[in-house]
Design a protein around this nucleic acid. Structure first.
Lengths: 353, 353
DNA sequence: TTGAAAGCGCTAACAA
DNA sequence: TTGTTAGCGCTTTCAA
């Protein structure tokens, strides 16, 4: 049935001029000219109806809308983009789509975009700093504005990307030369709050299970750890990564330091650590305290629930979207913004043994 | 002619004519004509160099590349799309970006797209069936092909979306009238395998914690549960949703049935159930057995690790991408494909008490 | 309130 | 091997 109707549509309707596009499958594309012809209006008028600009007599407008419906016409996005000089698309590049951290950002950004009649084009660099630059270069061609989330690429690449006619905004990274166009999270305060919490519980010896180095966020965290040492906290570091597997693998090394508390790079890593601790019979928080970072959904479903730091990701995405829109509107005085974080104390932390 | 005059105006550098684009910030867009002028070649030659088609003398090509680098020229995507008649973009619509289930699909699809010189445009319907149709309509305008992942929209909407000039492919849903253009997962076998596993352990009374209804996947699962009853398994159903929170909330009801095993809609739900069980002092699997579905990363890090069914999501994405590409190439005889699944037995299941 | 037509930047015949 | 030019489908003056 459907197939039949489709074939009929395809077969009917003039049939001439179909040889013009040798590339595709034998499809008739309905254009604005077809609508104009069918409705007895000009293409300009059809355009006015579609975009609701200017003035069109109600009855003419109705005829146009009818023709649009009859023909199943949809404006060609490329043609609109070319004529308008903008695509109606916001690009976002994230290191890893699988990281829950970015979902809420993307979601909030989408909401902002929608309010602007735009959509969001998402790309994933797969945690590959080398690929980031190329992907961003590609993405920027399709977008009116670009948001780079926690970019890991070299500073020079990052700077080369800015100063184009398409505005670029960055989250979670602050670079001299990048100036104002960054929305960041206050990792420094977050880690410091975690340290303060542990210190107040009586911990004096802490091990930090570090994530990907090189990142600005990493640097901020290390700065906070250094500051914590001024309060008499001894902090050592064990390298890991950003996944549960990484945490699992780093558990023995963390334990080996003999520290009374383990601070994980993020919640995933913390859950991996927790799983290994359970295997080893190491009790949390009786034998060792454990903290995460990010407040993923699962953080409160682990046994025990995780003490962690919540990042208002929605707010981050919202702020980034709003700033991007302002940049696109031509405002050039976007201020860098630092989003505050929240300590969530649960039962994975307690007094040292 | 026209082009020449236009370019001349712009090249004149007299500062006039810059008011032509009132919208943007005062930026000069570098076009292919600028590159042509700077390199002393024609636009056609520049185009050839960019796209590596036809033949260009090596030294001329070098001059062109040099000019491109000097001017920082980037081809305008909209113009390319319009001229070529395709956008070089594959669209994917997923119900929820936060669901890990879709990441691997998107990732695999991206890989396929890259091999085709395309990119992937991701959109998220936020689990809102009402929004799905509109988003898909929008997305399809920007894409050469569209993949709808586990769509929840009404059948009529789904069918209206197909039969366009842009090919549409669907995963995890099979509808008469949709015919061949679906890549599905064998949920039936997956659930049946789970039931078989439980039955062999000695369970006779099972409760299924159901996810979003209406979905085709739901139907398949129910079919499998019915089949399992033929083997003497009593199966009751408790409604929940698809998140850990939903599982947590449904735990008491599930326990209330007195069944000796709980089958969760997916791993998230299972983890939520597990958290509540722990609170209640219900031991898994000693007091009750528990199974998940999907094999998310966290499944093997829970306490106890989860017995679940793994879906080869990468394979699903790969198959979908390949089919989409074939569809776009004009092949019309795409076969529906059903991806097999794998039972992963871990320690959340055991003999009934 | 309408329509004609000039672009938007690029690709791909078609000529040379 | 290279250049000229006619579109691609739409928006937007500018006249009428």
């Amino acid at each position: 049935m459907t197939t039949a109707r489709r074939s009929a549509e395809r077969a009917g309707h003039g049939g001439e001029g179909s040889a013009r596009r040798p590339s595709g499958r034998g499809q008739k594309r309905v254009t604005i000219a077809d609508v104009a012809r069918a409705s007895g209006a000009s293409v300009a008028t059809v355009s006015r109806v579609i975009n609701q600009v200017g003035t069109v007599a109600p009855d003419l407008a109705d005829r146009v809308r009818e023709a649009i419906a009859d023909l199943g016409y949809r404006p060609n996005a490329a043609a609109q983009g070319l004529a308008r000089g903008r695509s109606g698309t916001l690009g976002v590049l994230v290191p890893d789509l699988a990281n829950q951290y970015f979902h809420d950002i993307i979601k909030a950004l989408s909401a902002v975009a929608r309010s602007n009649g735009s959509r969001v084009l998402v790309m994933d660099s797969n945690e590959d700093p080398a690929a980031e630059r190329d992907l961003a270069e590609d993405l920027i061609r399709y977008a009116d504005g670009l948001l780079l989330c926690s970019p890991r690429m070299p500073r020079a690449d990052l700077i080369a990307l800015t100063g184009r006619d398409t505005p670029v905004l960055v989250t979670n990274r602050q670079e001299p030369g990048l100036g104002l166009r960054a929305i960041t999270v206050d990792f420094f305060r977050g880690v410091l709050a975690l340290c303060g919490h542990l210190a107040q519980l009586g911990h004096r010896d802490v091990v930090y299970v570090a994530g990907p180095g090189g990142a600005w966020a990493h640097h901020e965290r290390m700065r906070a750890l250094a500051a914590a040492e001024d309060f008499g906290l001894r902090v050592r570091t064990v390298d890991a990564g950003s996944t549960a597997d990484d945490g699992y693998a780093a558990a023995d090394a963390a334990l080996g330091t003999g520290a009374s508390a383990v601070m994980a790079y993020n919640d995933f890593v913390a859950l991996g650590l927790l799983a290994r601790f359970a295997e080893l019979g190491v009790r949390v928080p009786d034998d060792v305290s454990l903290t995460g970072f990010d407040e993923i959904d699962m953080a409160r479903f682990s046994a025990p629930p995780l003490t962690t730091v919540a990042i208002p990701r929605g707010r981050l995405g919202q702020a980034a979207g709003a700033a991007l829109l302002r940049l696109m509107a031509g405002e050039d005085d976007i201020e860098g913004e630092s989003i505050p974080v929240d300590l969530h104390v649960r039962s994975s932390t307690g007094a040292p043994p």
